[in-house]
Simulated assay, not measured.
Amino acid sequence: MRTTIGIIGAGPAGLFLAHLLHRAGIASVILEARSREAVEQTIRAGMLEHWVVERMRAMGLGARLDAEAHFHGGITLQSGTERAHLDIAGLTGGKRVTIYAQHEVLKDLIAARLADGGEIRFDATVTRIEGIESDRPALHYGEGGVARRLDCDFVVAADGFHGPGRQAIPAAARREYSRRWPFGWLGILCHAPLSWPELIYASHADGFALLTTRSDSVQRLYLQCGPDDDVAAWPDARIWDALHRRLASPGWQLAEGAIFAKTVVPLRSFVCETMRHGRLFLAGDAAHIVPPTGAKGLNLAVADVVVLARALEAFLHHNRSDGIESYAARALERVWKVARFSWWMTAMLHRSPSEDAFDARIRAAELAHVMESRPAQAALAENYAGLPM
């Protein structure tokens, strides 16, 4: 096959990019190693920044989101048993955040892309990327036991942290920065009614906890745990006991329900500043990972491809190369700001195994300042709702 833009990965970055290119009259093909069913059923967190929702609506992708999502004008911060409402809408001129699970976003993007006649090759595993330093790169992939090749003008690796895209860049050419956090998150899904009208970010002596939602009857909750904890070490009774302790507040009760999914995710921060090498571009998790505390992963992936789509359109339609040459620099301006915010939220709300009494009191003072200071809340709200795009 031949196309203009070969995209590896049918995640948020790859699918949003394909839609943006289609609107600009640029052909693309997505190669995805997993089946469509696997992509659409992999449960991930889903908090959408204000500008992402507005863009989805403008692209005709917001109908089901508007009907089913939860729209929040604020969040709740909790220290010990004390709570403070952070009025995001009031602090940002009316911006809201939207709770809409990532796999639901992907369902909408896939259905719309296929309806537009777009090509997504599921169960197509990329085995080799060649020619990225030439003007005729190619993707070699296996599909149904048959070796195939996709020739293209540019390759976009939106294939996640472990995909082959970033590895195709010579190691000596990659500038990478990383931090592995000394804790992880235990996430659960349960059948239960809403316990609180917005997200609760709780800092407790035992560790962090987060209450969020999926629907009126399905809730998503998280607990700080060890990065290598075995899910089997967390029976339901232990989970509920920890959640009740860490989220306890006078006059309020957490609603329990049947737990039907559990996962442990280690937290890490990672940035590959080499987001372009020849005719290969990195986008989304292939280029950067942020801890989920700031709820930025999907949003940052979309920001990458908005910049990249403009650059590719300028080159292909107007023969302007400045956009593709400056893609990494422009994307990284936002990447590092988001990495900073996610680092700050994570450090403020989590108890580190290595912290001493001084560190613990500094953390508590930082959170107290945010809970009491309107300017501090405004800075959090600006980042949480989404920096200008």
Rank of each mutant, 00 (worst) to 15 (best):
A233K: 11
I169R: 10
E54S: 07
L247M: 12
G144W: 10
F358G: 02
H318W: 07
L267Y: 13
K262G: 05
T212S: 15
L150I: 08
P227C: 07
T213H: 14
E143L: 15
S134D: 04
G80D: 00
S28E: 01
H277E: 02
L65S: 00
H244D: 07
A255E: 12
E176R: 13
I5H: 06
G60R: 01
P137L: 06
E54L: 09
P197D: 11
V307Q: 04
S249E: 03
L114Q: 12
L387A: 06
A27N: 13
M389N: 10
L247C: 13
D153P: 13
P388G: 01
R276S: 10
F154V: 15
L114E: 15
G93M: 09
F71R: 14
P291S: 09
T125D: 02
D108N: 14
G145T: 07
L31V: 09
W185K: 12
A124V: 01
P164W: 11
A45T: 12
V126H: 01
T42R: 12
H19M: 07
V52Q: 00
A124Q: 01
E366H: 14
A173V: 11
R166S: 10
R214S: 10
G187F: 04
S269D: 00
P266N: 09
L282N: 06
A261D: 10
R64E: 13
P197W: 06
F341G: 03
R246N: 11
M389I: 12
Y201V: 06
M56G: 01
S373N: 08
R361I: 03
I200Q: 10
E130W: 10
